[in-house]
Design a protein around this nucleic acid. Sequence first.
DNA 1: TAATTCGATAATATTGGAAGTATGGAATCC
DNA 2: GGATTCCATACTTCCAATATTATCGAATTA
Lengths: 111, 111
Amino acid sequence: MESESAILALAALAQPTRLEVFRLLVRHEPDGRPAGEIAEAVGVPANTLSSHLAVLSRAGLVTAERRSRSIIYRADLEGLRTLVLFLLKDCCGGRADICAPLLAELAPCCD
Amino acid sequence: MESESAILALAALAQPTRLEVFRLLVRHEPDGRPAGEIAEAVGVPANTLSSHLAVLSRAGLVTAERRSRSIIYRADLEGLRTLVLFLLKDCCGGRADICAPLLAELAPCCD
DNA sequence: TAATTCGATAATATTGGAAGTATGGAATCC
DNA sequence: GGATTCCATACTTCCAATATTATCGAATTA
């Protein structure tokens, strides 16, 4: 992952409404949720949410699929993985001594 | 990690100069680098860099230590780990089915 | 001297009203 | 019945106001 796309993803998540939307969509994997329902859930007008969804989409963190009148948004976990990998690579680049312990500590995250 | 501090860290890294500074400091672990040297390396005036370092510091991603006239900055890898953990928890929260494969893919990052 | 803080300016992001686009249901016309 | 029109819904785009962030010269502190 290039710095440039990492910055897009970091900036996308560095905003309260967008972070909340992303987390909501992760919780609703793999079904996703229509834009209107997301807007209601996070309490922002439809147009405001729409621009936030566009930012997340450009950052590769959500995907959109039209279903009849609704547009279903889903979290793109591959995008998240790419971002996490980028952050870890920052420490790993040729320096497993730094990265290995860090990675070891991550394992219990699924408990 | 609270969303609020996650947002601080995400925002801190979502800026080209700051991301570059952070990566530079990770490469120079565990010695760190004085502010002036960092400023020269990234090609930014001292005062501009200073405010960027303050942002990284508030986000818990770097630490500062005065050494005689210089101030030595170091990457705070624990802060990075906390951020990565936060991002992963987004998928893990009670859903190891999503997180496990993602985590498995991260392992090769140290190669 | 090395670095930070202050203050002013420029650039960028967030927000939401109003208008625009896409979809599909229901009434109307041949 | 099939096509057309009209309407409501679900979103998005456009645009302008407001807020936040980035940058750097000048003054300040350690």
